[in-house]
Design a binder for these strands. Structure first.
Lengths: 342, 342
DNA sequence: CTGAAAGCGCTTACAG
DNA sequence: CTGAAAGCGCTTACAG
């Protein structure tokens, strides 16, 4: 390996000078810079990341905490990971993955190693046990998602309010009024409530209230069988519903199946719109689901950038950034049928 | 932060001694060890990972190369990532993610930083351009997947031969003889051929040849529309096929849709068995697909362990480990109908 | 504008 | 069994 020492000798300067030109951290005369740069090129010098980290007390490593449980098959989680690692790379950082569940002790142990400068957390709960741990450790962090009291720290998140409104407006434009909501059941992810479900339901209730429509809010676990069962309940208890907004990727196919098995068709009898669902999952559904896709990769990137800004002391205020999901076409939404006299 | 120096002073020993008890790298008398250990506990000492890395010339960091393109929504890719990070953690290592495509220069730049001790690569092609780069850099590596000439380096991979045989035997046991194969089209992933498709097709042809059945091997791109088009071709050109083994997760839903649109039903008219498909994807299909699920997480874990064994000089021979996919039930396979006189 | 030197927090021959 | 000391490859006040 080529060291700064080698470059310095070849260029006939001190190693401090080499460091200054490599980092651009101090004025160096053009002639000297030239000599150093060609020495580096000739020797193929790349500075040792570890030594730099130790000396500068900045490892330029950030960690992404990801709980394995519900993340495993999650396409959006994959996008966070990809976006975060890309974002880190764009800013000369590396992303390390810490497979820690909501276990404060495990997290603390990782933090104590002093490997990373900051932390990114995803699958954030409204009362997230990782936050106090991070705070106590004094580790800078940015959340992908929000706690119940989000203003205190940096986050990037989906703009659920806008997204829900966009989705409901879309369904209303197709003539639907009796629109049901299906979210994941609270507590499905752990002891504490999960923000997205709460925020989506709240936005839904607000929108319905504005139109004097009684809400039809339902919840189920994150798997197809639960969606099937939810379809039965929905059709039995709310036969007047002509559309469903479903914020539960895993249950969506079961929901579609349940509607079909009842003899009704999607979208002719019931329209279905997916929320927070990737294009890939939507395409797997039968029929392919019209959906609002989360900007997962972009959120991952932004989170990494926000964290690095924080580490570099660039931002006085913690970043609060919301991005709406993007509506994408499918074959699951049709104009509402006029109500049949019953 | 508490340093070894602090522990040494409190225990009344040298910092070398502290290092020895922390690492268990040299004999220390019981009494001394005791003193050091309680000093560590009292001070809450955790050794600095970076300093250790620099001094020992072992960062205990390994990188996972992942090409973003086809990996993004890929559930198995997510399992590799999760398994690899878990496996690294089990062996006191950290996993860093390098978002590099098949770009030798980019990879070399990462490698030159000297951050990691070794590398894991996934989405391996038969002629993978990353392999010569890794070899030239002298970086130890383990592949998740195999090149055309795999014996030279360590790898873990799916046992396609066994898996294909298991799947075909399963279909044969249900009475199917005219079994078609649908794989992803070669070159879909880049310039070089993709191992899984090649290996699956070869195993399929062997199995069919053993039974004197002419093979029906088809290929299509990785998306639902391509699967739909493949269904049309299949039904038109091979109306005698009663079952399809599909090794293309992305195209599978389109295939199912195409069969259905032709007026045939799955599984009554045509049985479909998914290969290399996660339970999650299989459940999204209509009907839920019987499938052989890749042991993605386990492969990720094993790859990390194999790499770390290599780094620790534990293995003389490079690891060659194959794991078959696991058959899981669905509703897409039924007994073959007796052929109709035509 | 440039350099000599201390220091980041560890590991590891080498002596004793 | 234990310690003094050099060294890992950088960064960064401090002097000049």
């Amino acid at each position: 390996m080529v060291r700064m020492q080698d470059v310095a000798e070849r260029a006939g300067v001190s190693i401090a000078t080499v460091s200054f030109v490599v980092n651009g951290t101090k004025r160096v005369s053009a002639a000297t810079r030239e000599r150093v740069e060609s020495a580096m090129a000739e020797l193929g010098f790349t500075r040792n990341v570890l030594a730099r980290a130790l000396a500068s007390r900045r490892s330029r490593l950030i960690a992404l905490l990801f709980p394995g449980l519900d993340t495993r098959g999650n396409a959006t989680a994959m996008e966070f990971v990809h976006g975060a690692s890309t974002g880190a790379a764009e800013r000369d950082h590396h992303l390390v993955l810490w497979p820690v569940e909501n276990d404060p002790d495990a997290l603390r142990a990782y933090l104590d190693g002093g490997l990373v400068d900051g932390v990114l957390a995803m699958e954030v709960q409204l009362e997230d046990p990782r936050v106090p741990t991070l705070l106590a450790a004094g580790t800078p962090f940015v959340l992908i998602g929000r706690t119940a009291e989000p203003s205190a720290h940096g986050y990037v998140d989906i703009d659920f309010e806008t997204t829900v409104r966009d989705c409901l407006d879309r369904l209303a434009a197709a003539g639907h009024r009796r629109i049901a909501l299906a979210v994941e059941r609270q507590g499905a992810l752990g002891e504490s409530a999960y923000g997205p479900a709460v925020r989506v339901e709240r936005a839904y209730r607000d929108w319905m209230a504005e139109r004097d429509e009684p809400p039809i809010a339902m919840a189920c676990e994150r798997h197809p069988a639960a969606g099937l069962e939810l379809a039965d309940r929905l059709l039995a208890e709310h036969p007047d519903a002509t559309a469903v907004l479903v914020n539960n990727q895993e249950a969506a196919p079961g929901l579609l199946r349940g509607i079909r098995r009842s003899g009704r068709t999607v979208p002719d009898d019931v329209s279905v719109l997916g929320l927070g669902m990737t294009a890939r999952t939507a395409e797997l559904c039968e029929p392919p689901l019209e959906h609002a896709a989360p900007p997962g990769q972009e959120l991952g990137r932004l989170a990494a950038h926000a964290l690095i800004d924080l580490l570099e002391g660039r931002d006085a205020e913690p970043v609060h950034r919301l991005l709406p999901c993007v509506l994408a076409p499918g074959e699951s939404v049709a104009p509402a049928r006029p109500p049949v006299a019953g």
